[in-house]
Design a protein around this nucleic acid. Structure first.
Length: 849
RNA sequence: GGGCGCUUAGCUCAGUUGGCUAGAGCAUCUCGUUUACACCGAGAGGGUCGGGGGUUCGAAUCCCUCAGCGCCCACCA
């Protein structure tokens, strides 16, 4: 088969993927030790970004590697309904049509979004195929599949029965833009320069005033008290007295509470239970009323007429103006504090009171901490374990409720006659149900997406049901972005341990962000996004994968640019051309016999590839992807292409050449699946899929012969180096006296070192090559030789310095006593070599003088 | 206020428990059309591993300290 001169990935990739998929190669084989990894489900209606390509690439390398090593390997794919994310997109669609969520019932909205997602869902899955993901598609799970909902309800019920679920009125993080509450970790905290206003509240039954300090004057209308520290001498006597709230005339009490810090602000705090979590707690302790002045849509309510309906920002300005007019602002100071922002809209989060479902997660977190303490889960990088521990030690109750229709409905019903009577029931498609003669109305909220995602490993493996894939739980390898450590990894560990009693995965690998070439975050607005699909179209899927994993270490954000993809593309082309050479050399009908090493180069390349294989294994077994890929890259490019292929032009060893090609393809396959399989399919002697081939097995070789080839290399390298440093671009001849290595490899040496000829002579002349244990001269004229003298002198000087260093190391008694024997031996050998070299160089200089 | 990480060649980064002359890709310079590949080959230059101190026979690697940068967590108005 004639291969084109350059590898054109687009011509082959889709067919190769189809070939794999049709053959069933992605499915677990059922034999061997189980190895499993679960896909962090990409948004079903989204497009893959560069992070996904890295994410999937890393897992796919491992799965392909394990598969070849004989594991019963599975990569379980998924698709995420991405509750809130998708909802935000869909709500925009509604707005375009001038519609609002309030025009529809939950069921109507749910089915509308379902259709919306369904239309675009194929996209993401096609893209996963384009990046070469060898996922077991038959086992794909969508996060709204029935079995997911069933399992989630089961978990919810268990938590409910264990008394860990409660419904309560709390201050929640509320997005007034999207009209839903958030979990704590979905709030972005930003440090901001603001103001602290000191406002005087006049006393009612006494002369004087009390000055409070606040950053949020607009919430003043919701004030129900002023709190001071019980021991504060400034205010002690005022406790129990009343003040008049400016602008409203409302009378509110001065109360005492330990929570107040005497040293902050004025030592007097306005208490607004409806709009501040601390105040909420104070309010509960003192049995204060709650006055909500900011509505769920972000506008003012329950205020004097002039402020009604204003947005928070405007309300603040007008309030301040009004207070100014009443002359009650005593001071205005600059103040830096953190403000919570909606991670999606960028608008401030409002703390508002809402009835929500909470999970008391402390007991689950404690269990997870135990697992961490027992090292049941290994983290890559290890430092993330402490980050996770810190998070687990500080978790607060988890707000599970979301006020959006696109998600898994919370299976709870409320007694219409008794608001405190809630029951668990799965009939969420009915608005009202009757149980024991009582009528119950359903909860309209849905679950936080992460509540179901947190159960992903045991859902996708059907562990609770004991399904076909249940043997894969706990999963072997979990890999995702560092940003998901708390929102996903932590929850999977907690919910996995709680529900199954087992850790959900043994190893966690976290990758950093893929940044642009200037280490900036990629974003559409900056226009610095590298689109994986465009890269694939231009350079090929393998090129992208190779480029992404190069020089990348776990947990570290790293810059990325097209250069790396191009380097990957070039490597694929190199592989391609190796194959082209080999196939041409072997002929169209070649059928290999058992390969046996004959030439020195044969022994050497077996040694090289075996060493590379071992280093790839070591690296991949500890998830050092970049290192594994680098070993593979250099073994093939430097070892196979630059030396072995060149050598094989002179010394024929067809069976071994075939072995070298197939071994190279196998070693490269996890990293560059498409090009290796494409080549594999062109080999006249194979009738299989590379993806299902076993990992290479070793071949016998002779260490000494391999070492001999290294000596040829040394000679060649020296001849090249000296030739290139000589004036002009002549080809020189090589002269030698008695040297069987040179004698036996004349042609090879001549070709590799680009020599005019290699000749045996009785009387040597010219320039002696500085290679230990070799007697060889470049046949140069006397003039050239003279010009080369400074060169020689320099080498002599550096060699002297080297010898000195080695001698002093060996002269150090502590070194001899404490350093390992092999190191000392090595040092001694180095010294001997250098000494021999210096003898040769000195001899050369004497001749010149 | 806590925690994590980074500082190594012009650029972007590797460097596993301390141990060969500290590496890679890209970039730079010189030479080259040898029947796989110019998406190539051969060769070269370029680093006191952020500063200082310590432990050690030996430190980019471990410890202390200083400086600069980045990220995450946190309900003090």
């Amino acid at each position: 088969m004639n291969l084109a001169k350059a590898y054109e990935p687009n011509q082959y990739e889709p067919n190769i993927y189809a070939l794999w998929e049709k053959s069933g190669a992605f499915r677990p084989t059922g034999t061997g030790e189980p190895f499993s990894t679960v896909m962090p489900p990409p948004n079903a209606n989204g497009n893959l970004h560069i992070g996904h390509a890295l994410d999937m690439g890393l897992k796919d390398i491992l799965v392909r590697y394990k598969r070849m090593r004989g594991y019963d390997a599975v990569f379980i794919p998924g698709a995420d309904h991405a509750g809130f994310e998708t909802w935000v997109v869909y709500e925009k669609e509604l707005q375009k049509k001038n519609q609002s969520r309030f025009d529809f019932t939950r069921e109507q909205l749910y089915s509308q979004v379902w259709n919306f997602v369904e239309q675009q869902r194929g996209n993401m899955e096609l893209q996963l195929r384009a990046i070469g993901t060898s996922a077991s598609w038959d086992d794909l799970v969508f996060t709204l599949d029935e079995k997911v909902i069933k399992t989630v309800y089961g978990t919810f019920k268990k938590l409910w029965d264990d008394g860990l679920i409660y419904r309560g009125e709390r201050i929640v993080n509320y997005s007034t833009k999207f009209q839903t509450s958030y979990a704590d970790i979905e709030v972005d905290h930003k440090l901001e320069k603001g103001k602290l206003w000191h406002i005087a509240y006049p006393l009612i039954d006494k002369i004087g005033e009390i000055v409070i300090a606040t950053t949020r004057p607009e919430t003043l209308f919701g004030d129900v008290a002023v709190a001071v520290h019980p021991e504060d001498p400034r205010y002690k006597e005022l406790i129990g007295h009343y003040v008049q709230l400016p602008l409203t005339g409302k009378e509110i009490p001065i109360i005492a509470d330990d929570y107040v810090d005497q040293n902050f602000g004025t030592g007097a705090v306005k208490i607004t239970p409806a709009h501040d979590p601390n105040d909420f707690e104070v309010g509960k302790r003192h049995n204060l009323p709650r006055v909500q002045v900011i509505d769920f849509d972000g506008t003012m309510i329950n205020t004097p007429q002039q402020f009604l309906g204003l947005d928070v920002d405007t309300a603040r300005k007008r309030t301040l103006a009004a207070l100014q007019a009443e002359e009650v602002i005593r001071k205005e100071e600059d103040y830096e504090h953190t403000v919570g922002y909606d991670y999606k809209s960028g608008l401030p989060i409002q703390p508002l009171i809402k009835d929500q479902w909470f999970l008391n997660i402390k007991p689950l977190a404690e269990r997870a901490l135990q697992a961490l303490d027992n090292d049941e889960i290994t983290f890559f990088p290890t430092s993330r374990k402490n980050v996770l521990r810190q998070y687990l030690e500080n978790v607060h109750d988890w707000n599970l409720s979301r006020q959006i229709p696109w998600g898994i409905p919370i299976p709870a019903f409320q007694n219409v006659n008794d608001p405190n009577d809630w029951i668990f029931n799965e009939h969420v498609d009915e608005k009202r149900i009757t149980v024991d003669g009582k009528i119950y109305q359903r909860e309209e909220d849905t679950f936080d997406t992460w509540f179901s995602s947190g159960q992903w490993p045991f859902i996708t493996t059907d562990y609770l049901e004991g399904g076909d894939l249940s043997r894969f739980y706990p999963t072997s390898f979990m890999e995702t972005g560092t940003d998901l450590l708390d929102r996903w990894i932590a929850r999977m560990i907690m919910l996995g341990l709680y529900t199954t009693g087992k850790i959900p995965f043994k190893d966690v690998y976290l990758h950093g962000m893929v940044l642009d070439e200037h280490s900036q975050k990629m974003s559409k607005s900056k226009g610095n996004v590298i689109n994986p699909m465009e890269s694939i179209a231009e350079y090929g899927s393998d090129a992208l994968r190779l480029g992404l994993i190069a020089s990348r270490s776990p947990g570290q954000n790293q810059a990325f640019s097209n250069d790396r993809i191009i380097a990957g593309r070039n490597f694929c082309n190199k592989l391609w051309n190796i194959a082209r050479f080999v196939e041409h050399k072997l002929g169209e009908n070649y059928q290999p016999s058992q390969p046996v090493a004959k030439t020195l180069a044969d022994h050497w390349i077996i040694n090289e590839l075996t060493a590379a294989q071992q280093s790839i294994e070591r690296a991949l077994d500890s998830y050092r992807f970049a290192e594994a890929s680098e070993s593979m890259y250099h073994a093939i490019w430097d070892g196979v292409a630059d030396w072995y292929i060149e050598a094989s032009k002179d010394q024929d060893s067809p069976d071994l050449l075939a072995w070298v090609l197939t071994t190279s393809l196998k070693l490269a396959h996890p990293f560059a699946p498409f090009v290796t399989e494409t080549i594999w399919q062109t080999l006249p002697w194979v009738n299989s899929l590379l993806i299902s081939e076993p990992w290479p097995s070793s071949l016998a070789y002779d260490d000494i012969a391999a070492g001999e080839f290294s000596r040829v290399q040394q000679l060649v390298t020296e001849a090249r180096f000296v030739s290139s440093s000589l004036p002009g671009n002549e080809k020189y001849g090589l002269l030698y006296q008695t040297d069987s290595l040179i004698e036996d490899n004349k042609d090879l040496i001549q070709r590799l070192a680009k020599l005019k000829e290699v000749t045996r002579v009785d009387q040597a002349r010219g320039l002696r090559l500085a290679v230990a244990s070799r007697e060889a001269w470049l046949d140069v004229s006397t003039e050239t030789l003279t010009e080369h003298q400074t060169n020689l002198e320099q080498r002599l000087a550096t060699t002297h310095a080297d010898i000195k260093a080695l001698e002093s190391r060996l002269g150090n008694e502590s070194y001899i006593q404490k350093a390992p024997a092999h190191l000392i031996e090595e040092t001694q050998k180095q010294l001997r070599d250098k000494q021999e070299l210096i003898g040769q160089l000195q001899h050369e200089l004497e001749i010149l003088r």
